[in-house]
């Protein structure tokens, strides 16, 4: 396997939810790739399927949800139908996850040292003393001052930012090859968010781990991501290199998101009054009441009858950059 091959590849993944009245498709033919040592940003509004994709990958879908088609390939291995035992070996060891709310994802009755050591003892078979040594190293690597002493502290004795550092230490303890970070800084202050982002970049450079960053913040994507996938209502509606998408958004939804994000203007740029913030009218369609054609058509200013009746294809707009839209101009190949 060469280094250019994607480390993680999701091909045409669909996830369905069974309800009393029938099945609802919450992820519809989603494809993604993450290259070794790089960061993929997944962007979209709540309910668009970002977190569902991560859960499907970890095979941790809630009851009633099921992968109905597609493949998940991790480093050449198809894990779509891997056994539970194999998944347990992968989770925490090869793939680990950082959640949004560090207070609810740490166990309040164990010390953070115990919780980090548990991961390495379970997955790497270290004995108690070595595991504790490892926990100290990990707390140091996420820059928690006084690591030896803090090992014996409980989660409530840490601030929000420090707790998220503990989560990151735990996620990194087994040297995973892929980290899924689901809104890792949403609950934190901006100054602490900046510290956590700086730490994530530093650790990625050291360890070469791949990161899947799930976020609703285009600013976070600009800061961290190499590639971006934009989700809308269970579809991946645009994907490509971060620079290409942020400078040249091709899907009307992506450009809508760009124009409704308020920008901080400093110095001379702050002199004029605030320019009006554009909005995307309406709201996301409800699950089970998807429009016929393009799912974004009811909110799209460019939509015509064709958009409302037929599902749009993925159109290539630049190298490795595509948008699922009838109105996007295809790349002119020289």
């Amino acid at each position: 396997m060469t280094d250019t091959a994607p480390f993680l590849e999701i091909i045409d993944l669909s996830v369905e939810m069974k309800t009393e009245t029938g099945t609802i498709r919450v992820l519809d033919n989603v494809s993604l790739q993450i290259r070794r040592g790089t960061t993929l940003g997944i962007v979209g509004e709540s309910g668009c399927g970002k977190s569902m994709t991560a859960l499907a990958m970890m095979r941790l879908l809630p009851p009633g949800f099921e992968i109905t088609s597609g493949q998940i390939i991790l480093d050449g291995e198809d894990i779509t139908r891997a056994s539970d035992a194999r998944m347990r070996a992968l989770r925490g060891n090869d793939i680990s996850m950082i959640f949004q709310e560090p207070m609810t994802s740490l166990n309040p009755v164990f010390t953070v040292g115990d919780q980090i050591a548990e991961a390495v003892r379970q997955h790497q078979g270290l004995d108690k003393a070595k595991a504790e040594q490892r926990a100290i190293e990990m707390l140091k690597s996420v820059q928690i001052p006084g690591a030896e002493a803090r090992l014996h502290s409980y989660p409530h004795e840490f601030s929000g930012g420090m707790r998220q550092r503990v989560m990151i230490a735990m996620a990194l303890a087994c040297q995973p090859r892929l980290i899924i970070a689901d809104e890792p800084t949403t609950a934190l202050d901006v100054t602490v968010q900046a510290q956590i982002f700086a730490l994530m970049r530093e650790l990625q450079e050291e360890t070469g781990t791949a990161i899947m960053l799930i976020t609703h913040d285009l600013g976070a994507v600009a800061e961290l991501a190499d590639d971006v996938a934009v989700f809308y209502s269970g579809w991946r509606i645009e994907s490509g290199p971060a620079a290409s998408i942020l400078r040249n958004a091709s899907h009307p939804y992506t450009s809508g998101l760009m124009s409704c994000t308020p920008r901080l203007r400093l110095g001379k740029a702050a002199a004029g009054g605030a320019a009006d913030l554009r909005e995307i009218a309406g709201m996301v369609p409800q699950l089970g009441q998807m429009p016929q054609g393009c799912r974004f058509a009811p909110r799209c200013a460019l939509a015509d009858d064709h958009c409302r009746s037929a599902v749009p294809p993925d159109v290539g707009v630049a190298p490795a950059h595509s948008a699922k839209c009838w109105k996007t101009e295809a790349e002119v190949l020289a």
């Binding site: 901006v190 913040d217 285009l218 600013g219 976070a220 600009a222 800061e223 971060a242 920008r263 901080l264």
Partner: peptide
């Protein structure tokens, strides 16, 4: 503060 236009 983060910005969508900022360099990586």
């Amino acid at each position: 503060a983060l910005s969508p236009e900022a360099e990586r």
